[in-house]
Design a protein around this nucleic acid. Structure first.
Lengths: 351, 351
DNA sequence: TTGAAAGCGATACCAC
DNA sequence: GTGGTATCGCTTTCAA
């Protein structure tokens, strides 16, 4: 390898052009130190910088200051459409503060996620947004803690004292369950998310608590956790439930992708939605209003989630603020996939 | 601001641990220069590096070598689901070469895109993937050229000699038109993409050429270009066409989002799909198989597109290869949104 | 085969 | 208020 070609326009060039020392030019261009420079000199520097199209070199700045104006994000499956609006909102909020978002997708492998944290740390990211974290002893989160890297969880909680922006998952499932109950359903099964994820656990508990509060039974075997948040996994879990739960009239799913899988399972079983069976999702990801039938689901505020997480992280980066958890309120979006149960099946009916 | 806290484990530390000079450690850790180091010393260095969990500091490396192992991507609207699989594939291919992908979303504003190029250049990205480029005199492309930054266009062509990975847009529209004609349609209108984009132009030309080749007329006003690739813009354009084109039996859309908007327009006009009117899309973005009716569309090979673009860019980065355009073959995916025209309306029927 | 030293570009101290 | 200078961590040329 050869010696690098010199950057076109650097601070020194700007300083020469303005007839000042590089130190002075640096001070004049930094809003925080500008007051240390005489007005005319500062003016000449800024003019020269603008004229030459000067931009501080990020690598040099990063090396010297230890910060990169880069924030990393870890998501499990960028293909999951629910992340698009969340990340877009986070990126926009970060951009307002001069930060760029570096998205990495380690999939569902926690060790790989921890490896990515190390790589991002080597790139000197100022902080991380984690959408991958599992509930206990997550390696990626541990890697952040070990390095003193500010981290904020998105749509996941990671235990006591870990900053996070989440939707109220228990309340969300309660909305879905009460909606189904109000339609007359009594035999409701739950397609759950992966147990090690906070969303999987909380939504399952939310389902069970809401059922109990309504005096509805949840027989053993009426809850089936999918192995991952995916359409195929949702179909597998829903198929099991359809075979196992006599007289089930509704499937409350922990996630929209699982609900799409439930659609597949119902279709294969010859059950029309919502005539024969109702299905609800969770997240209100893009396009679920266009499927047939349009999915009744629990809307989490994607944009707000991304924005709040970004702001929380920036607060931690700038002020080292401790920053607890933010819990956002979900809402129910009633569409076409839920309706009254078939006559005679709403109560403890026969098979 | 204070002086930064020293990085935990740096090259010097590794060298000390191995009992060699930092230069030697550097050589021992770089595969390209390892042969210059005596085997036992090299072994000690690698062992020490592994034991301490050493990672070279990206900022320092970047500053010294001029390369960052970072590649930028510019997309117009990260929320557009078609980009998710493309970017995921590109990121995976780049990761194999040690590069990370930095995604930026300037929306539809070309000036803003050029601004982002400057910002990414200041971050010393090794190259750029551009999905935003318009057909002529694109500012972002010009900004890359001016800086000598390797760039590859994705799903867009930018004129002679600009490296690009695209689907054969003319052929794609021809697939859709021939499919509709084979079903018996003769009165087909086109919901076009924005004219300044290569996809908008090529797909429109592909539509017109295919219609001409089949001997089907395209009366004036039967082509309407949407102002942007979006659902709302598609609805607006499709509504115009429905009002303006007597006896139209099919809408061939330049893009899936436009087709979703066409669904909205047809619904508002009380036209059932495909009974009263057929609709086709282009791209086969995620989830369009789940909408009602499932969308007949032209599939572009997303993953291959992302992968090929990444490889092309890496070739340019490493070898300065000139790298022409890659044209991929689209395929037709027949689903439920296309069917035979209503009886008596397939040929030059009355209103 | 290895050590010494320069330098990428910016910033933060210390003098003046 | 301004200039000088050391320094962040690494690579690479030059000398030995």
């Amino acid at each position: 390898m050869t010696t690098p070609t010199p950057r076109s326009v650097n601070l020194r060039r700007v300083a020469d052009e303005a007839g000042v020392h590089p130190s002075t030019a640096s001070r004049a261009l930094n809003p925080a130190t500008r007051h240390l420079v005489a007005a005319p000199a500062a003016g000449r520097v800024q003019e020269a910088a603008a004229r030459l199209g000067y931009r501080p070199d990020a690598a040099a700045m990063s090396l010297r200051t230890g910060r990169s104006r880069l924030v990393g994000a870890l998501v499990p499956g960028i293909a999951n459409p629910v992340f698009a609006p969340i990340l877009a909102a986070a990126a926009a909020a970060l951009a307002e503060d001069g930060h760029a978002l570096l998205v990495a997708d380690p999939g569902d492998d926690p060790e790989r996620a921890a490896e990515f944290v190390a790589e991002l740390a080597a790139r000197r990211v100022d902080g991380l947004l984690l959408a991958t974290v599992s509930l206990r002893d997550d390696p990626a989160l541990a890697a952040c803690l070990a390095r003193g890297l500010p981290a904020v969880l998105i749509n996941r909680s990671g235990g006591e004292g870990v900053p996070a922006v989440v939707s109220d998952d228990r309340a969300g499932m309660a909305l879905a369950v009460r909606h189904l109950a109000a339609l007359g359903h009594r035999r409701i099964a739950h397609v759950g998310g992966p147990a090690p994820l906070s969303t999987g656990l909380q939504r399952r508990e939310g389902f069970e608590e809401a059922m109990a509060a309504l005096g509805l039974p949840v027989p053993p075997g009426w809850v089936e956790a999918a192995t991952a948040y995916g359409r195929a996994e949702g179909e597998a879990a829903a198929s099991l439930l359809l075979a196992r739960c006599p007289g089930v009239t509704a499937l409350a799913c922990a996630n929209d992708l699982l609900a799409l899988g439930a659609y597949d399972a119902c279709r294969r079983a010859g059950l029309r939605i919502p005539a024969a069976i109702s299905v609800t999702g969770h997240n209100d990801m893009p396009l679920v209003d266009m499927i047939e039938p349009p999915l009744t689901t629990v809307r989490i505020p994607h944009e707000e989630m991304g924005r709040r997480a970004a702001r929380l992280l920036l607060d931690r980066i700038h002020q080292g603020a401790p920053a607890g958890a933010v819990v956002l309120a979900p809402t129910l979006v009633e569409r076409g996939s839920s309706g009254p149960p078939r006559a005679g099946e709403g109560d403890a009916g026969s098979l």
